[in-house]
Amino acid sequence: MPRMNEKLRYWMLVLPALAVMIFFYIWPVLNIWGISVTEPATGLGNYTKMFDSNAVRVSFMLTFRIAAITTVVCLLLGYILAYTISNFATKARPLMLGLVLLPFWVSVLIRSFAWIVLLGRSGLVNDALMDTGLIATPIRFMHNETGVLIAMVHVMLPFAVLPMLTNMRGIPGSYMKAARGLGASEWRAFRDVYFPQTLPGVFSGGLLVFVLSLGFYITPALLGGGRVMMISEYITYQIQEFLNWGLGAALSVALLVATAIILFVAGRFVNLRKTFLERN
């Protein structure tokens, strides 16, 4: 059979999914750019409005700050978990792994609801504190940055743990043993021998959490109560309250460009292929 014909047949398998994706997904997303320069009037009006707006700047800063803090906290907590699961827990390993994955399978909406039940003004935490007489008036855990951060870390933590686990699984224990055998303390062996080898997993998990956090909507919207407006919520707010599709589209373009720049820069330090294309 001629080679070209064969290749064509393989493309026939690839094409349906690819065509659907390009026509119904890539094209509409690229079209957002079109909306941003045509609504309500043709021109770059939405962009000048965006760059001049103080509220937009505040929202972008807030978004980056929350995403950065979430990433750092997730990496710290996730590292402890991943390290324990891969090195210490032999008997408890399947149980620990199951407990990491359990929240992963519960929808973000329900997890946010659980946090509202806990952290709300008359939530369980405040009720318990008031019943025991520790506080007289409810503490505000929710509708502020703290509430959003707690719930965001909760949602994102598994995303940080999984790439680090995959990475640590590939590190043979013999290096640490050799370092210990040569007289290094346990801490020194960890710091100088083990930790540098785990950096690819750390970067990979960090990038995943950061990128997902930047565009996160549900948890900030529910736990922030309109007071902590991250950029995704700002976009829907512009559209729902003011029908301001043009500005919403311009903000979307800005968010997309920011995400693309981060991925591009991160690509120099992180194996993007392993982070996104070949993750399991």
Binding site: F24, V29, N31, L214, S232, S252
Partner: peptide, 26 residues
């Protein structure tokens, strides 16, 4: 084929609100 595989995972990278805005208009 590798490029095609990257195209297929774009929805993971695009923020939900942004893609929904695109969907809506189309």
């Amino acid at each position: 084929a590798t490029i095609a595989r990257w195209v297929m995972i774009v929805p993971i990278l695009v923020p939900p609100v942004v893609q929904s805005l695109g969907f809506y208009k189309f």
